[in-house]
Write a protein that binds this DNA or RNA. Structure first.
Lengths: 194, 194, 194, 194
DNA sequence: AATGAATGAGAATTCATTCAT
DNA sequence: GATGAATGAATTCTCATTCAT
């Protein structure tokens, strides 16, 4: 396996366990089983790792979302599944996600962010487009803009509950329910067959 | 002016300019015009600054919100004003807000976060409660839960647009409009007199 | 004593003992009896020490020269004493002097060099001026220019003998004699009373 | 062209541009267009490069000197040409020359230095010998010793002017003239046919 | 011979925190 | 309370050198 990938995976694991602030480069390379100097062959600093990690996390999220969402289910069901999936990822990786949401921990690497998130925006956008064409949601929806709003809504509330109400599962469930309710009214799901 | 206040304001300024990661205590005290050691008379450590800053920022946000929102306007108008106000604060302080949203840059002081944000949640909660009682929004709204969701929605989308679409004003306006539209359908504003 | 002075003196000593290349900042501070970080309060790097050391060495050289040269002796004698003195300093500090001669080990700090050496040039210049006025040396001598040439002559030959003929005393003596002979003819000492 | 030569020339170029202290092996091999490891096929270490470079520079100097000096001209003219030539080389390579003069940047390889410089000493020595035999300079000259003194004189003053009066051509010319005047009196050129 | 990714010992450097004044 | 020079533990980062291909 490429050393670069090894570093990224190792970093995610270590960040997960001991927090980002407290993680030293030496922790990352130890876990990755490579030499200290090798790290610098691939990344100039700890922070420059973040875009690569963000990419990995977004990919991970999309992967789980796509595997959770059943394309043949009703759209309202599909969005429910999506919320479930996103909450799931945030439950597990809440600290890393927090840093990703906050602009990759610094202003340096932000330009890349847009392109990292793009495929996810697009996926939801297409889902909304299809739903609208089938009349499953209100016609005034603008898929691209709404996609961003929906992701913001889901991720920020997931963040709230996992970062601050720290692993209170019932609280998370109630929050999720509320978000779904909020989303349903915002999109105005119609009962049509998908 | 108290040195403590001077430190907080200086820190906000410096964070704004060079990012939080890269800011040293020495930068903060230099700007504040006080000695290095004086910092520790008011804050036991560097990290303990963050809650104080968050408090300041939330207070600032609430202040602007309260001064912008016209209590006698229709509720739909009031929420529009609120969105405007929150976007305003985020436009100016997007980097600091990013850090506040992401858990105060570290997991240590999170407990305090809840209490810092509480008055803001409460204010919106009461607004929703009143609106529901007057029949201005749908009856199924649960004020406390919805308050959190609304703040998450507004702040995360504001963050998206200011952090990543970096000061593209027209983009910000379109995003704001979309959020308002989304919110309107979610709350189902009725045309009643306020 | 000032920490800065302590650092400079410590550095000269350590450079003397183990060579400049091999000397670590930690060696210097250890000898100076201060903390590692304190070094950086006064000098940004090891190389930035060099102008300060050069200044010290030039001062040391001038000091020895002035104490060795007898103002009431014949000029030819005075120049002999000067050569003796300069060779003496170079014998003891040949490695440090080598670095000073080579432009302070880097091109960065060269501007300062001129001003460091100035008082030494001036001293010789005045000596030549006086000698010429008294008719002790040839009238065509241009004091300022010749001063530089003389210092170059003495220091470079001293360097040759101490750096390369490494502490071969008889070789050094013969070289010194040759330089003096060379110098005498170049200046054309006349036998006049000083 | 041999890789070894490529390395030496590349090193001279890079040293010239960024200084010796700051030059890494990787810079040298990059410029030479060869792989990092290849360096070690030709030189056992970084420091072992220096004598090779010195050799190259001395050879270059001798080459220019020999091509500039007209054997059939008067000796005073020949020495003038020699000074010109040496100043020329120092004008172009002052930084590298500085390092060579200062003992090859470290005390390790000094022994080799003597043998590197030997042919140059010898060449001048023979020139002086011939001049003395022909009665063109004073009879008391000791060719071998004087050769060293002359080289020291010329090189150190050239160094002074190119390293510190940084490329001030008129200053260089005046210095050169002074050196020549100084040298003429020291050698006591007689007007005889060469 | 040539390569260049990988190494890791070793040094530089940082900066939050302390404390004598 | 205020100061700011001094500290030194903790980390980052460098780069000459190696070695499997």
């Amino acid at each position: 396996m490429g050393k670069k990938t090894a570093i990224i995976h190792s970093a995610i694991e270590v960040f997960q366990e001991q927090g980002i602030e407290k993680t030293k480069i030496s922790d990352i390379v130890k876990r990755a089983g490579i030499a200290q100097g090798t790290f610098y062959l691939y990344f100039p600093s700890k922070l420059s790792l973040m875009p690569a990690i963000a990419e990995e996390m977004v990919a991970k999220t999309m992967d789980i979302v796509q595997r959770t969402v059943d394309d043949r289910a009703a759209y309202s069901k599909q969005f429910e599944q999506m919320v479930d999936a996103i909450y799931e990822v945030n439950r597990e990786y809440y600290e890393i996600m927090a840093v990703i949401y906050s602009g990759l921990a610094s202003t340096e690497h932000i330009r890349e962010w847009e392109s990292i998130y793009a495929p996810f925006y697009e996926w939801i956008s297409e889902k909304l487009e299809a739903a609208r064409e089938e009349g499953a949601i209100r016609q005034s929806i603008k898929p691209e803009r709404t996609a961003k709003v929906i992701i913001g809504l889901i991720e920020s509330t997931a963040e709230q509950v996992f970062l601050y109400a720290h692993r209170d599962e019932s609280e998370a469930d109630r929050q999720k329910e509320e978000v779904l309710d909020f989303l349903s009214h915002a999109l105005q799901f119609k009962t049509v067959k998908s």
